[in-house]
Simulated assay, not measured.
Amino acid sequence: MKLTSSSRLLAAGFSVALVACITAPQGDAGYTRSSALPAPPDPQDNPTTPGKAALGKQLFFDKRLSGDGSMSCQGCHYRHLGWTDGLPLSRKVGGGMNTRHTPSVYDTGYYTAWYWDGRAKTLEGQVTAAWKGQIGADPAKAAAVIASVPGYQATFQQVFAAEPNADNIPKALAAFLRTLNSGEAPWDRYTAGEKKAVTADAVAGYELFTGKAGCAACHTPPLFSDSLFYNVGLEAGKTPPDLGRYAVTKEAKDTSAFKTPTLRSVGISGPYFHDGSVVSLDGAVRYMASGGKPDAHKSSLLVDRKLSEKEIGQLVAFLNTLTSEESFVDPTLP
């Protein structure tokens, strides 16, 4: 099983980035990371500790963090759906809808830009933006609500030596998110030597993934994402189109380009793409393998791969072996 030359380069870049990271998180809030993944980077201004991650886990599930007390962060990110929400477009507090699909937060600690268009430069910044926009909070007011809970008062003093505030709440949430690493998947067990962990079709699908189908050029193992941005033709014909990464960089090459999503647990995280426009994994594979829709800014990597029905099925079989199998226990809230 071999990666394409471009995949090797991207994988090497991923490895270098991880080696260059500052420190590794010291706690995982009860989470188990796949043996295929090294420890994610940990920023100097917000080092992960077991206590901080556990506090962030509670906050992630707490509706009191929202503007009206009706929605938690977990309201858009469910473990059994690969930390997505199963909806084409994500919903906000008050019933409003976003214009994009909820991305998975699996392995989010490894990335260097967040959101589909990469507009957030830090995970803490992304958390703060979602806190304000998605769940409609005024951070100062929400922090005061959290501070009124005796159990939180004590824990924040232990972790931050401070009351809950608009700065340390996102830090706790980000610390927890850095522990949401993909657990061991059947494919990880297969590559570790457990040859009966997957089917022959899945193995053939991996050969296609790294060869004829060209998937690994962007969905680079072990994260199965290169964290870069591509136009895959999905905005063609829309009026107006979602400009994607262009709204951040103002560069024509980024017109309607979106970040490569991870394929870990892709079998349970549909619907697919930034607009949630494709319901099934089979449909998503067919779209990409066909070369997508014509678009002036579409990536040159997206071409018709001329796959047979059998090959489509083998690719889907492989992708389904990337589903994480770790256990997860919801927190008890104070």
Rank of each mutant, 00 (worst) to 15 (best):
L208K: 02
Y115W: 09
P331R: 07
N181T: 14
A11K: 15
V16D: 12
T199L: 04
L234D: 08
I169C: 10
P50G: 12
V266C: 11
E194N: 14
Y110L: 01
P240M: 08
T4D: 13
K250R: 13
L180W: 01
Y106P: 01
V248L: 05
S277W: 00
F328D: 06
D226K: 01
Y272F: 14
G13P: 03
V93T: 15
N46Y: 00
D254M: 01
Y246K: 00
V16F: 08
I146E: 02
Y115A: 02
E235M: 15
S300F: 07
C21D: 11
G244L: 00
G151S: 09
C218T: 07
N320G: 04
K132F: 06
F156R: 05
S7K: 01
D117C: 00
E184I: 11
P271R: 02
T102N: 07
E124P: 01
T262R: 04
S35T: 14
E325K: 13
Y152S: 04
E184S: 12
T32M: 06
A252L: 11
A137V: 13
C76N: 04
Q26S: 14
V145N: 08
S227P: 00
G118V: 00
N165I: 04
E194A: 13
L243W: 07
W116D: 00
S299N: 03
L173H: 10
A284N: 07
A172Y: 09
D138H: 11
G237F: 01
R305M: 06
N98E: 15
H80R: 12
S148L: 07
T255Y: 03
F318A: 09
L81K: 15
E251L: 13
I22A: 14
P41K: 10
W116V: 00
D201W: 05
M1F: 12
L243Q: 13
N98T: 10
K52P: 00
P334D: 09
A174V: 07
S299P: 07
T210S: 15
P164G: 11
G136Y: 11
L228F: 07
F60K: 09
S35Q: 14
L228T: 06
K92M: 12
G214H: 03
G193I: 12
T99I: 14
E235R: 05
E309V: 06
S308F: 10
R119A: 04
P271F: 08
